[in-house]
Each structure stands twice: as C-alpha cells, then as structure tokens.
Amino acid sequence: MRELMASSDHFPVSFEVRLEVFRHQVAGLSRIRRWNGACDVSVAQHCVQACDLASPETAGYALIHDIEEFDTGDITTPVKNTMRSLGIWQRFASEIVLPIRRRFTLLAGLEWPWPEGVIREIHEIDQKLKATEYRDCVDLSLVRLSAKDLAEPYQDYMLPWSATKAENVFMERAQNVLPSMAKCDAGDVRERSHCSGRLIEGVTDKHHELIADAQAAITSLMNEACQTKLRLAELEQAFKTRQEQHLPTSDDMKKMSPEQREAALQLRAQHSADLALQSGMRKRLAFIECEIAHWQERIALATA
C-alpha cells in the first residue's frame, strides 16, 4: 500500500458523470471473484465489508481500495511477490494501478495521496478480511496457505453475496461515505450549468451540465489513448530489437559465464515486465475506447 504516496491535482466533474463512472466500474467489480476465482466473494463485496469495518475517516478510502481490479483483475499475493522479485511490480503499479486508483480517489472527492494512517488501517482490515475469506469462502482444493501467512480472522462467518447485491450495496455506501457522491441539490446543478458555455436550445440545464462534463471526459480519455498508443509503439520497437538480438534460452544460459548469465536474466526479466505492461496497456486502451463510445452515446441521448 505504500505506493499510494504520490502527487495529486483536482479532477472536477458533475454528480451525474461521477455516478455513471462509478456504476460502470462497480458493475465489473461485482462480477470479479477474489483469490483469482477460488473464492465466491466478489471484489465489490470485499470493498464494502472493508468500508463497514473502517473508521469514519477511512471508510471512503476502504470502499475504493481495490477499485482498479476491474481493469487489472484480482492479482494474488504470490503473483505480486513474484512480480516484485523480478522487478516488474513497481512499474506495473506506477503505470497501470496507481493512475486508475488516483483517478477514482479524485472522483470520489478524497485526498490524494492517501494519508499514511488511512493506508495502515486499510492494510490491517484487508489482512483480516483475507483470513476470514480463506476460512469461510475459499475453495481449499485450489488454495492452501499456512497459518503464518494469515492474520487473525474476524469472528463473524462470511457468506458470499450475489453480484446484484454487491453492486447495489457498494453504490449505497458510495453515496454515504464518498464526499463527491452525496447528491447535490437542483440549485447547485443549475448554477454550474450556466457557467459551462453556450446552451443548446431545447436541452435542460441538467443535460447541459452532463454534456459539458462528458465532452471534458472524452477529451481527457482521447489524450490518454494517444499517450497509451505511443507507449505501446515504443514497446513494440523494444520487442523487435530484442528479437533481432535473440533472447537467450535456458540452454544458451548454461553455456554462459556468471556475468553473462546475470545480464541475460536481467534481459529476460525486463522482457517479462514489458509483456505484462503491454497486456495491461492494451486492456486499458480497449477500456478507454469503450468509455469514449459510452460518453458519445450519452451526449447523443441528451441532445436528442
């Protein structure tokens, strides 16, 4: 959780846009099972339970502490540890995980970077929930952990929720504990809409606000898509260069000196890191394209 300590800025959008963005993300989280599918508890349920166990100051952060897993999937701790040992995790976290988490922190109206006390509290809750899930909901024919790998579980027995319940309860909590998700009154929406530019004839003030924010979201997403495509092109060039240089096989490495073997291992680790990064960026690009289409459709509906 220490990688949450980073710089911040402001990301203002309307209540309607925030609600729609969160709804889309949470619908995905409610259908992703934890423990790489070996547990019937969804990521959305896990986040709600963390929220309910947290202090009032931490509840909002706890609700969104795994928000990026709709994009990345639930990466298990052993996989994360392997990625760390290969030098992959830090880059994956800084270029894939943290930008998503930061975006939703700002959309939620919470402080970025996260306060250190909040990070510590969520980590403790997370570990106890992990132990409780392992005791009550994990298929032990698929996963086996020793007692030393687990914290003390919570006493109450945990039952998995349906995807529908997880999604609905998450959205209820969001409007209770996330500062920017509390419903604003009609006067606030009207006042902001008059400042958003030229009004479109026949369109309500509420829709003017939505259109302006949707256009801003599309611009931001298109800029991100452009940067992502540039990074993917750089990775493709790096892969091509390595192909020409011939990545060493295990048999090749047996014939090398210790120094050559160390350099070869570093090259293979970098190649693995770049492959993971490429996969994540391709998924992100596909998501961005879907989001742009979604906001374009919203504008079309608002102006119809």
Rank of each mutant, 00 (worst) to 15 (best):
A166G: 07
M222K: 13
E234Q: 08
Q227S: 11
L230A: 10
E244W: 00
C195W: 08
L232M: 06
A214T: 04
N176A: 12
N168P: 00
H246I: 06
A217R: 10
V169W: 11
D185C: 09
Q215I: 11
R192K: 15
V177F: 02
S196K: 15
E244F: 01
K165F: 14
Q237L: 08
D185L: 14
A238S: 09
T241E: 02
A233M: 02
T164N: 10
A186I: 14
K240I: 03
I211H: 04
V203Q: 13
Q237G: 01
L247K: 00
N176C: 04
R242D: 00
C184Y: 09
A186W: 05
L199N: 07
A217H: 02
N223V: 10
A212I: 06
P179D: 06
L247C: 01
E167W: 03
R231I: 04
T241G: 00
E191K: 11
A174H: 01
Q215H: 04
A225G: 09
L199F: 12
L235W: 02
E201R: 12
V203E: 04
Q215T: 03
P179K: 12
S162D: 07
A214S: 15
D185Y: 08
N168M: 11
A163G: 08
N168G: 03
N168R: 13
C184L: 13
A217D: 03
H207F: 10
E201K: 13
C184F: 09
A217L: 07
L221Q: 07
T241N: 00
N168E: 15
S196Q: 11
F170M: 10
E172S: 13
L210I: 12
E236N: 07
A163N: 09
S193M: 09
K183Q: 15
N223G: 15
E244H: 04
Q175K: 14
N223E: 13
T219M: 06
L199G: 12
L232G: 01
N223W: 04
Q243L: 02
Q243D: 06
E167K: 13
K240M: 05
A182I: 04
G202E: 10
M222D: 14
L232H: 03
L230E: 10
H194P: 01
R242K: 03
E172V: 07
N168D: 14
I211R: 14
D185S: 10
G202Y: 07
C184H: 13
A214P: 07
S180L: 10
V169S: 13
V203C: 15
G202M: 09
T164P: 00
N176G: 01
G197L: 05
S180G: 11
Q175C: 11
L247Q: 01
V189T: 15
S220R: 10
A163L: 11
D205S: 08
T249R: 05
T241D: 03
M222N: 13
E167F: 05
A174Y: 01
Q215K: 07
S193P: 07
E209P: 03
R173A: 05
N223A: 11
E167P: 04
D188V: 04
D251V: 01
P179C: 14
M222A: 12
L199V: 06
E236D: 09
A225V: 05
M222T: 07
M181K: 12
V177R: 06
D205H: 10
I211T: 06
K240D: 09
